[in-house]
C-alpha cells in the first residue's frame, strides 16, 4: 500500500540524513522525498512517498516520531487531500507532430517552456494519475528526457455544514 507522509522537522544540518538513514537502516522503502522550508524558517517539511503494509507504516510513523529532530508526522492515508508533482519532459516535435503535441499540452493544461527546431520541453503539474496519462500520450512522439519532482501534499480544508 502506498502512503504519502508529511514530516515536520527542525531545519538543521544533517536532518535529511537522519530521516533517509532511518528508512535505509530499517529497510523501509522511499519512493520519493521532497524537502522545503515551511512558513517558519526554523522548520522544514519533508513529504515522503513510501510503501508497506499497515504494520510497516505504523513502525515508520513511530520511528520517525522517535527522532529528536522530528516535530510531527502525518499520514495522508484515508483523508481528503491534494497531491501534486511537477514534470519536465522533453519530446521530439517536428513539423508533422507539433500540432498534435500542442493539442495534448492544451488538453492537460500543461505548458511549453522551451522550443527548438526538433524538440519541445513541456512543464506539467498534477497528481500521479495525470502525470502518468500525460507521459503515456506523449510516448509515441519520442520522449528524449524526463525530470520530475517528488510528490507534495496538503489536506483539503473541511467544508462547513
Amino acid at each position: 500500500m502506498r502512503h504519502t507522509i508529511s514530516v515536520l522537522v527542525i531545519n538543521e544540518f544533517g536532518v535529511l540524513s537522519r530521516i533517509s538513514g532511518l528508512f535505509s537502516g530499517r529497510g523501509f522503502n522511499i519512493e520519493s522525498l521532497t524537502v522545503a522550508e515551511t512558513l517558519d524558517p526554523a522548520i522544514s517539511r519533508m513529504t515522503i512517498v513510501t510503501t508497506g503494509d499497515e504494520a510497516i507504516l505504523e513502525q515508520i510513523t513511530k520511528q520517525l516520531n522517535k527522532l529528536v529532530s522530528v516535530i510531527k508526522v502525518h499520514d495522508f492515508k484515508g483523508e481528503p487531500h491534494i497531491e501534486r508533482e511537477l514534470l519536465l519532459i522533453k519530446i521530439t516535435a517536428n513539423a508533422e507532430t507539433r500540432a498534435e503535441v500542442l493539442r495534448i499540452v492544451d488538453i492537460f493544461r500543461a505548458k511549453v517552456v522551451d522550443v527548438s527546431p526538433r524538440a519541445y520541453t513541456i512543464e506539467l503539474t498534477g497528481d500521479e494519475e495525470k502525470v502518468e496519462a500525460f507521459k503515456d500520450l506523449l510516448r509515441p512522439f519520442g520522449i528524449k528526457e524526463i525530470v520530475s519532482t517528488g510528490r507534495i501534499a496538503m489536506p483539503r480544508t473541511p467544508k462547513h455544514k
Partner: peptide, 10 residues
C-alpha cells in the same frame, strides 16, 4: 556524527 547517527539516540 555521520558514523554514529544510526547508533545514538541523538
Amino acid at each position: 556524527v555521520g558514523i554514529t547517527r544510526p547508533c545514538t539516540k541523538h
